[in-house]
């Protein structure tokens, strides 16, 4: 494994009009590691992820990336979306081929589509339309599409939160092994602390708006060795919850003021 991509967030702040959303954020997503962002609703997690992937220009500060990208990488910074963002007029295979079809030969494209469909258990659904799939299957297409471009960094914004609890548990395990196998640098935004302790090498706790880094917790146990009922992880989950509980309660009450 060569040296992967390192993302360095340096003094990032962001304002929407007069609304200060992020303030003085400095973080480093280490090569091949998973950085999880948690924090109360509206604290700017999606905003920060948008800035990290170049989809939003920060009001202050900058994000730098440095390191090697996979040799056949077609899109270094690649998102997986909460709402899946599949094209309804393309089949599963068509969605996965979205970027490949313009950049690879026909046979290389077909081979890579087949490979990631197999990896995500979608082989039998290659010709299905998105509307025919359950939410869990749609998000598998989302992750297959992302893996197909051989990203150097995966950016996931609450990829499981539109799914029911059982599907979420199933996909969480699949994500864990896919991410471990791919070895890409990963930034994962979630509300769900169980997801955070299952996936994170670094768990970044943001304060309520304006979001600031409140704490960064390192979890050194390899992802492959983490078990759902692990007492250490459950204790960590409790600790994280105590950190954000008060902020979350206040943020919940602020929602009405923020939305008008």
């Amino acid at each position: 494994m060569t040296d992967g991509l390192r993302l360095t967030v340096d003094g990032v702040g962001h304002r929407y009009g007069g609304l200060q959303v992020l303030h003085g954020i400095s973080l480093t997503a280490e090569p091949g590691e998973v950085m999880v962002l948690v924090g109360p609703s509206g604290c700017g997690k999606s905003t920060l992820l948008g800035i990290m992937g170049g989809m939003l220009a920060p009001s202050e500060g900058a994000v730098r990336c440095a390191g090697d990208v996979p040799p056949d990488c077609l899109n270094a910074l690649t998102y997986v979306f909460q709402d899946f963002s599949l094209l309804p007029w393309r089949t599963v295979a068509g969605n996965v081929a979205l970027v490949l079809e313009d950049r690879l030969s026909r046979t290389a494209c077909a081979a890579r589509v087949a490979e990631v469909l197999a990896l995500t258990g979608l082989t039998d659904f290659a010709t299905a339309w998105p509307r025919q799939l359950s939410g869990g299957m749609r998000q598998r297409v989302g992750i297959a599409r992302a893996l197909a471009v051989r990203p150097a960094c995966l950016l996931l914004d609450e990829p499981l939160s539109a799914l029911d609890a059982q599907t979420r548990d199933l996909l969480l395990e699949e994500f864990a092994s896919l991410i471990t196998a791919a070895g890409t640098t990963t930034v994962y935004v979630t509300h769900n602390l169980a997801e955070a302790v299952r996936l994170g090498h670094q768990i970044v706790v943001l304060s309520r708006r304006p979001g600031q880094v409140r704490d960064v917790v390192r979890v050194d146990r390899p992802l492959a060795e983490r078990r759902a009922a692990d007492p250490d992880l459950m204790a960590l989950e409790q600790r994280l919850w105590r950190m954000i509980r008060d902020d979350a309660a206040v943020a919940e009450r602020e929602r009405i003021d923020a939305s008008d």
């Binding site: 989809m55 077609l74 899109n75 910074l77 998102y79 979306f81 963002s85 094209l87 979205l98 970027v99």
Partner: peptide
Amino acid sequence: RGLIRMGQSFGL
């Protein structure tokens, strides 16, 4: 809008 942003994020 989300689909267009998806396309942009994939470098189309």
